[in-house]
Simulated assay, not measured.
Amino acid sequence: MKKLFLLISLSVMAVLPQANAAGPSIELDKAENNLRDQDSLQRGAQLFTNYCMACHSIKYMRYNRIARDIGWTDEEVIAKMSFNQAKVVDDVLTRMEPGVGTEVLGTEPPDLSLMARLKGTDYIYTFLRSYQMDEEGNWDNSVLKGTSMPHVLEGVQRYSSQEEYDQAARDISNFLEYVGEPAKLERHDLGWKVIAFLLFLLLLTWLLKKEYWRDIKH
């Protein structure tokens, strides 16, 4: 028993330094995005196209699926997101040639299809709003120190009010949440219908039980 207790103690002591090394968690701002806001999704799609697709892809999405879900026609999505350079059935891929990211940025930019599910929309929203310029005039991000991603929304931030820039970051995070799970709203809506059906079935079962046992004395 003493050996077992000693082994557990040593295991806990080995884990504690790793937990402390991780440091305090980052306090994230609330994105408060809304997947039912199609105007926001459309703005987010265009912002992603103009400022993100030069490096990042969302390869698990097709143009026609995006069009159907956010209220565009096939012609509109091709014109606005690929500038008529892709087919409507194509996957949404980056415009960056393979290897350029590693050569220029030192790393290959990740695909963002599942980034919202991995990090959460609050993280994306906070990250986009956390770029700061140091004394030497270089940009860095307080959420991810030393990030190789440049401040691609610098122009938007410079010529917008803080409220407008916050909305732009919210629209991008909203769009990426949709990309991470396109059927999320359908799943939620179906969930309520399933719960309502089960409650109705429960009521019918209870009434049927009452009818079966009505003439039986206990």
Rank of each mutant, 00 (worst) to 15 (best):
A19T: 00
M115F: 04
L28H: 02
K87M: 03
G101V: 02
T121R: 12
S173T: 09
W192V: 10
M61V: 04
L201D: 01
P150T: 14
R65C: 00
P182N: 11
G23M: 02
D39T: 11
W139P: 04
D111F: 03
K80W: 04
E135N: 15
C55P: 04
K59S: 14
D134F: 13
W139L: 08
T147Q: 01
L202F: 14
L153M: 15
S82H: 01
E97W: 15
R62M: 09
Y63V: 08
L202A: 10
D215K: 13
S25P: 02
I216M: 08
L199S: 03
G99S: 14
N84G: 01
K87E: 09
L204N: 09
A31N: 12
G71L: 09
A79W: 03
L114A: 03
G71V: 11
R170L: 07
Y60F: 00
D140R: 01
G101P: 07
V77T: 13
P109W: 10
A67E: 11
E163N: 12
L190A: 13
R214H: 11
L201Q: 11
V194C: 09
G191S: 10
K2S: 09
V88T: 03
K209W: 12
Q132A: 15
T205W: 09
D37H: 02
G44V: 02
T73V: 06
P98N: 15
R68M: 11
F197P: 03
S40W: 00
E211W: 10
E164R: 08
T73I: 06
P17N: 00
L47K: 06
P17C: 01
G180F: 08
S25A: 15
K193Q: 14
M133G: 02
E163L: 12
Q18V: 05
R43Y: 01
L6I: 12
V12Q: 01
G137K: 08
H218M: 11
